[in-house]
């Protein structure tokens, strides 16, 4: 892994292309996308459904390999990484808040944060301290021992944010983090995301199709049909 100086971008995508094979036909989900996210920068990724936002996040988050192009996360070129190396990148360099399932149902809120340490460095006490601090910041101190099923949608989303920050990532990818919340709750969650990212100087991409959310971000990038149309 490279040394991460302040000047190294949190993410750099160069001519990234992703083609899904669908039987005989092909779907070009990303069409030679170039994108750079500076350290600590929060970028809103806006675009209609099917425009390639999730695909872009998955590639930036080392969940998916691009068909072609270069992907550099916090100075590490992961373009040619094998599945094992990609797993390590997900564990150590990035955080992810997914569109749907974000929590392990048989773990409490606190354990959902601690599991990140358990599958990774297993530092023990420092990880517990970090989990408690994050839960406190996210207003979940009194919910630490609750299972996901005992939490509201907003609370679950906040646990997911804490989970994504547990490994002290350089880049966090939020895929439509507010889409299942009413707009008031959605704004509150966005505010929290902005606070947490800025407090840590962590870069983020926030996927949304809600223009109101973009005001919590440093800039907006628009996508359509696998291309970045406006940034």
């Amino acid at each position: 892994m490279n040394v991460n100086g302040a000047s190294v971008p949190a993410l750099s995508l160069q001519r990234v292309r992703k083609v899904y094979a669908m039987g005989d036909s092909e779907v070009v989900a990303l069409d030679d996308v170039d994108l750079e996210v500076a350290p600590g920068e929060i970028v809103a990724l806006v675009g209609p459904s099917g425009s390639g936002k999730t695909t872009l996040c998955s590639i930036a988050g080392a969940i998916l390999s691009p068909t072609s192009g270069r992907v550099v996360v916090a100075g590490t070129d992961i373009s040619g990484f094998n599945p094992k190396q990609l797993t390590a990148v997900r564990r150590d360099l990035v955080g992810f808040v997914f569109q749907s399932v974000n929590l392990v149902p048989f773990l409490t809120a606190r354990e959902n944060l601690l599991v990140v340490d358990e599958i990774g460095k297993r530092t023990g006490a420092p990880a517990r301290a970090r989990a408690d601090q994050l839960l406190g910041e996210l207003g979940l101190a009194d919910r630490a021992k609750n299972l996901p099923a005992q939490l509201s949608g907003g609370q679950r989303q906040r646990v997911a944010i804490g989970r994504a920050l547990m490994n002290d990532p350089k880049l966090v990818l939020f895929d439509e983090p507010t889409s299942a919340l009413d707009s008031k709750l959605g704004m509150a969650v966005m505010e929290l995301i902005q606070q947490e990212m800025k407090a840590r100087g962590t870069a983020a991409i926030v996927v949304t199709h809600d223009e109101r959310i973009t005001r919590f971000c440093d800039r907006s990038v628009h996508m359509d049909d696998g291309r970045i149309t406006k940034s």
Binding site: C57, S58, I63, L64, Q99, S100, V101, R156, Q157
Partner: peptide
């Protein structure tokens, strides 16, 4: 497939 985590419906748990 970890990619399956990026899709699917229903936020939460």
């Amino acid at each position: 497939d970890p990619y399956a985590a990026t899709t699917g419906a229903g936020v939460g748990s």
